[in-house]
Structures are given as C-alpha cells and as structure tokens.
Design a binder for these strands. Structure first.
Lengths: 262, 262
DNA sequence: AAACGCCATTGATTCAAGTCAACGCGGCGT
DNA sequence: ACGCCGCGTTGACTTGAATCAATGGCGTTT
C-alpha cells in the first residue's frame, strides 16, 4: 500500500509517556472508552452495535491515522488488511479503466465504515479527497466480532443497503441527466452531507467542496471544462456564489433543487 | 400493488385434494421441504442460511407467483409487504425521473433475493423483464427469522455487497464508456448470467436477451436507435449473430470482451 | 519579483450520440 | 387477407458535451 502522506498514531504504540488518548482507551469495567464516547461512529456508525467490553477490545486493537489530501488508501486489486471508520474528511472510491479513464463510484463521509468484508482483495481504489482521519482495525478482529455480535453485521448490512441506494441514485444521474442537472444534483448531495442543517431548511447553504473540478468531472462522467461551464452558468443565474475555487454558497437551495431534474 | 398479470399459487390455499406440492412442504422431522431441496435459492440463495425446521416454517408461509412479462412487481414509493426469491426469469429494477426519463439500476436473476429490508417503502420500481417466477414470503416472517438466525443476515449482507459491486461496475460503464463499449459490456454481462458456461470458456455463446431494445437503452443510458446501431455494427464486424430480435449468438467472446473497454 | 506548476476558466471547433422521420417485419384481431 | 400495432432498423440532420487551445489566478520555489 502507498503509505506516502499517511501519518499513523497507533494506540498500542509504546509511548514515551502514557498520554491522554492512551489512557482513554484502557477498558474500565465495561463502560465505553472515553475516546469512543465522543466518536460519531459510536453513535451513528458501526461501533454503535458493540457493548462496552467489545468496544474496549476493538479500541485496543485500533489506531488512528491522519491521511493527507490525495494520498491513496487502498489500491485497486490490492490485498486489504484492515477496516476503518471515517472520523473526518471525505474518502473517494474510484474505478479506473485500463486506458486511464476514471470514475468515482462513491464518497464516504464520517462516520462511514470503510472496507469490503468477504472479499480478499478490493475491486475499487480509495483515496483521500480531503485530509482524512480514520480509526482503523485489523481485518481479523472485526471479522471475529462480526461472528460474535450479530448486531455488528446488522449495522454493516444497513450501511451496505444505504450505499446501494446511493449508488443507484447516481446511476440515474449518470445515465439520464444532462450536465446541468448533474452539477445541480452534485452540489445538493454535497450540501446535504456537509451542511445538513442549511441544506434541509434554509434558503442558503455555504460549504467547501471536498473535490477538485477534476474529481467532480470523474464523479459525474463529465470533463473539467463542462463542470466549470455549468458552475459559471449557475453563478450567472444567481443560484450559487463561488467565493473561491473551493468555497461555494448556494444562494437558493430550492431553485438549485429545481435544476437537479427530480 | 399492481397484480395485473400475476398468477399466485399459495401453498397455504386449501386445495380440493392435497397435491404433491402441498405434501412436499409439510415439515417432516427437520429435513428440508422437498420443494426447497430442488430450489436454487436453497443452495446459492438466502435460504441456504436456514436449517430444516426454519426452512419448513418459511416454506409454509411462502407462496409461488408466476408473473408475466411487463408486469409491475413493486411500484416506486410503494409500501412493500413481502420479500421474494427469484426462481426464474429476470427482474428489472428501475428509477424514473418526474419527466419520464427512466434508468434501469439493476437486474435480478435466480436465485437473487428481492426486497429492501429496514425501509418501509421502496425507492425503486421492480418489474418483470421476462416471465418471472417468485417464491414470496411475508415481510414479518423474514424479519423475525433475520433476528433469530444471524446467518440469514449474513447472506443478505453478502448479496447486498455483491449488488453494490455490480452497481459500481455499472457506474463506470454509464459514466465513462462509449456507446459501443456499453453494448459490448452489456452483452457480456447477460451472457455471464444466462449462459455462464459458454461465456466463461467457450469461444461462442448463445442466449435470448431478457430485455427489449428499449430496456437495454434504459439500462445503458442510451436511445433505442443507438442500441440498434451498435448491435448492427457488432453484427457486421462478425462478433455477434442476431438470430432474431431476441436471440443473440456471440461468435467470439474474446473479441467482444476486447470491445468492452476493460 | 520573476519563473514555475497547478488548477480553473473561457473560447473555438469537432464529433458522438440524440432527435426526427421513414420504413420493414411479424403477430393478432377482425 | 387485410390493416393495425408494437418493435426494431436505417437514414438525414441537429445538438450537447468533448476536444483543442489560450489565458488567468495563486501559491511556491529560486
């Protein structure tokens, strides 16, 4: 695996002095480790399926990683030895044709679970769209817990079904929407994931795009030129404001939704 | 639900005389019901997760349905009261935009499981691409068994992950392949599902397309004219033979694969 | 501060696939 | 036998997005 740009903090690593994190992960009776209590994955993610003792055990085997923008997490057709929870940032899942054409087939936000159970090597690549922090576990530990705790498998099933719904939603976008509709749909999807409050109710929403123009093109099956042109069109029509390349403000969520084709 | 064109054989239905099927489903000790023993779903499908007693119980609650080509199984945003195994035929999963544009987001072959656990109403439509036979169960029975038998949830997870892999594979096709590559990929996928032997090893493979030109277009994000033209091109190039509208012979599987873009 | 690289935008032109239209073929009802 | 209808094919033309090419910020290096 290309570990370029990946900083790893192992909680099992012998530290010069026991730091706060280290202590936070030690199991006390069967209450959850302090670090996990504050973790999104503990509540909305797969760790919610575990009891205090299991959580402590998993936490002991886990380590945090901070991955910088652009770094590859999993190569295509690579043997994968660990699973992770996304704690922050955005991970892009990609597929590449032999001649280099690329398609982003999914985006993962906190607290999504990253990994493909029941398959030795992955059929997709994963890389950090933004700086990403992960809580990673050895494959074997997670797989043993899946057998011991059916609730965990239930969570994974729920996430897999949600991802399947998402993937099928994007199949419609890829297959049947125009470039303009694709861009509108994309902005709405990002807004809903990054700034859910604003995107749901409010008229305006402001956020940083987690993807470059090139990534957006690879996600929507377009070229960067078309992405750029459609964004300027939305800007000229007063639907979005482009603060700078990355920062976008949706001036009118309802009008944007009207251009998404559904 | 639109039951037009759906013939239902209930195994709980009081028959004028106990027929073979009826007797086959009665539980004897804990050996599997005779009907299930011969069923593909018993071996490769989700029923493989159940023991003899559970299988007998599920079989008692099940009923067979034969659905004719074109009939709708599940409407979009419809409340779904049952799950099914596909025993034969092909089910198409569709999504439709408000203005009528349609995208087929998946195809299900025997012995796939049909249904979306953990969600009250479906977000996709399902209809019979060919004549389809289903083994259907009440939602509640399956959901209880999922709780009692984690193996069942494991099977569903595996199928969901496989479907997710398929969906992502098609996202690449929809987003990044040319019309010619889309058609080649489609023919290969169908061949692998319908005539796996021939498609894998042999040089030629022969099968009936389970979809109309219009369905193929909706699956690949193309128009029927483009589908027709690309098929003609493959025929002129001697890669396929079009026996009649439905029946296709792949003259050279390797050459076809060479045109699929991957 | 000049030079470079990277990312994004904008304009001019091309082309793959869509649209519109005509026609062919086979099954079905009258 | 006839006309009709649904499905598929083929041809002529149009168009939306890709391609090719030039230019503009902006941060980093020298």
């Amino acid at each position: 695996m290309a570990f370029a740009g990946i900083v790893t903090y192992s909680f099992r690593m012998p530290a010069s002095r026991p730091n706060d994190d280290e202590r936070a992960l030690r199991p006390q009776s069967d209450s959850p480790p302090a670090l996990c209590t504050a973790c999104e994955a503990r509540h909305r993610g797969v760790c919610g399926a575990l009891d205090g003792e299991q959580l402590a055990e998993l936490a002991r085997a886990s380590h945090l990683q901070v991955i910088e923008e652009g770094a590859e997490l999993i190569g295509d057709a690579e043997r994968v030895e660990s699973y992770s929870n996304v704690l922050s940032g955005v991970v892009k899942l990609t597929k590449t044709l032999p001649d280099g054409r690329q398609q982003i087939v999914g985006l993962q936000f906190a607290p999504d679970f990253l990994g493909r159970p029941f398959r030795e090597e992955s059929t997709i690549g994963a890389s950090a769209a933004t700086t990403v922090s992960l809580c990673s576990f050895p494959k074997s530990t997670v797989e043993r817990m899946m057998r011991e705790q059916p609730q965990l498998e239930n969570r994974l099933l729920r996430q897999a079904l949600d991802e399947l719904d998402d993937a099928r939603e994007w199949m419609v976008t890829l297959g049947r929407k125009t470039a303009a509709e694709k861009i509108a749909s994309f902005l709405l999807m990002i807004a809903r994931n990054i700034a859910p409050r604003a995107a749901g109710a409010g008229e305006t929403a402001s956020f940083d795009l987690p993807l470059t123009r090139s990534d957006i093109a690879d996600f929507l099956g377009l070229t960067i030129e078309t992405v750029s042109r459609q964004l300027t069109k939305l800007r000229i029509d007063g639907i979005i404001r482009i603060e700078n390349n990355r920062r976008i403000t949706i001036e009118n969520v309802v009008r944007l939704a009207g251009r998404a084709g559904d």
